[in-house]
């Protein structure tokens, strides 16, 4: 990940995608948990995307790390990261942009493939919206490049999940022929 501007303030916002409700950690945990009981036809999709989300988590982590690792205490405080510094120093932590710690209460597993996949589609669209706000809030061209890539992955994942819904709907026709 290339970060071209010393801007610890942006780290405070990027952390939303690290430990926020629609962030990459929530996505990875959601998919890699649902994968066990989803019909076997779409287990592979959830496994692949769930694993990919962990890679995206590393990208966000790297951005946050680079933005804060050489910041002074004064810079951290000016960036609104004074509370983070007191609690975590320069460590990263799984919380959202408002400082609320990550909670699995933000993700669901309903035991119903259609309900679960719609949750997944909604999560991807919400993450896409978050990336759009993040692109809007920074003028770092390199960060924007990374965020645009991550936003596009949300677009593709949402499509893949909608395809998965269609596959589960289509099961009927195949099974009808005995």
């Amino acid at each position: 990940m290339k970060v071209s501007k010393c801007d610890p303030r942006l780290a405070k916002y990027l952390i939303e995608q690290y430990g926020g409700a629609d962030g990459e950690l929530a996505a990875a945990l959601r998919y890699l948990n649902q994968r066990y009981t989803i019909p076997d036809k779409v287990i592979g999709l959830l496994t692949d995307i769930g694993t990919e989300e962990f890679a995206h988590l590393e990208m966000i982590a790297t951005m946050v790390y680079k933005l804060t690792k050489d910041a002074t205490v004064e810079q951290m405080e000016a960036a609104g990261l004074g509370g983070h510094l007191v609690d975590h120093g320069f460590d990263l932590y799984y919380h959202n942009a408002a400082g609320n710690p990550f909670t699995v209460a933000c993700l669901t597993a309903k035991g119903d493939p259609i309900a679960n996949l719609y949750e997944d589609i909604a999560a991807e669209e919400k993450a896409r919206a978050t990336y759009q706000w993040l692109i809007d809030i920074t003028d770092d061209a390199d960060i924007q490049d990374g965020l645009r890539f991550l936003r596009e992955r949300e677009v593709i994942h949402a499509l893949r999940f909608r395809e998965a819904v269609e596959m589960l709907k289509g099961y009927q026709e195949e099974k009808k022929v005995f």
Binding site: P39, D112, P113, I114, V165, L168, K169, Y171, Q172
Partner: peptide, 11 residues
């Protein structure tokens, strides 16, 4: 046996 339901609103 495993089964899931797809209600008609999906179509």
């Amino acid at each position: 046996p495993k089964a899931y339901i797809v209600p008609p609103n999906q179509y």
